[in-house]
Amino acid sequence: MATPADITRIEVEDFLFLEAEMLDEWRLKEWLALFTLDASYYVPATDLTPEASPATSLFYIADDRSRLESRVERLLKRTAHSEYPRSKTRHLVTNVRIRERGADSIFVSAAFAVYRTKDAVTDLYVGSNRYRMVFEDGALKIREKRCILDLDGLKPQGRISILL
């Protein structure tokens, strides 16, 4: 069983590729199960530093576990108009690096490119995902996912109605 000390980059990549597959197939409840019960999901505004705090700065998204659950619930409704009919997405994950190994967690960075297509318009979201991951009952789980966009605002994407 893997531990923070000996987990390999390939094992982490497999986990991130599975996460991407779940998102692209809209298996959102399964995706939610990849997160710990105290997890956070953050997308800072693009004029903030990557380490900014959502308690003192305006983000695009700053979900605790409860809001993240509500976000998933919302996205599965027909009344989530921005994503009904659903868009097509493709999450590409690359440049995966284990940056730190702690006693009970690892810190991982991965470059991402997410394509979203709806009504014949394709938008690209590009940036770096920073994960704090822990081991729960031998399984890797996400405690924090922070998406740092390499963009100047959401121009022309206009929204982050999908999960990055």
């Binding site: 983000f59 695009y60 998204i61 700053a62 921005s82 994503e83 206009g158 982050i160």
Partner: peptide
């Protein structure tokens, strides 16, 4: 700020539907 983000802005639970 949390109340802001729940409704407002392109990652909120409401503004994306306004954009749409």
């Amino acid at each position: 700020l949390f109340s802001f983000l729940e409704f407002l802005g392109p990652g909120g639970f409401a503004t994306p539907d306004d954009v749409e």
